[in-house]
Amino acid sequence: QPLTASMLAAVPPQEQKQMLGERLFPLIQDMHPSLAGKITGMLLEMDNSELLHMLESTESLRSKVDEAVAVLKAHQAKVPSTNVG
């Protein structure tokens, strides 16, 4: 059953993000299995209307995921942490 704006409107904001995340996560996991949780977390900061659009359009999702991965990698490069490899 596809997620719709009216379904989202019926629940509190926090729950809206949860519902969107549950739908987005498996799609993102297909593209980037190891980063899916982080990427989903980043995308959930966007507007719900954008997130709904991404659920409808794989192309849109893919481009946003690509952007998120680039931002994430740049961020990880700046933060000193355990660097393997």
């Binding site: 993000k17 549950e22 996560f25 949780g37 942490s81």
Partner: peptide
């Protein structure tokens, strides 16, 4: 204070209540 934000972004875990909204700084 320590200005690094190493835990960003908040990680979404399926089945776990999302609390990312609480972490958003204005």
């Amino acid at each position: 204070s320590n200005g690094t934000n190493a835990s960003w972004p908040p990680e979404f875990c399926p089945g776990v209540p999302w609390k990312g909204l609480q972490n958003i700084d204005p």
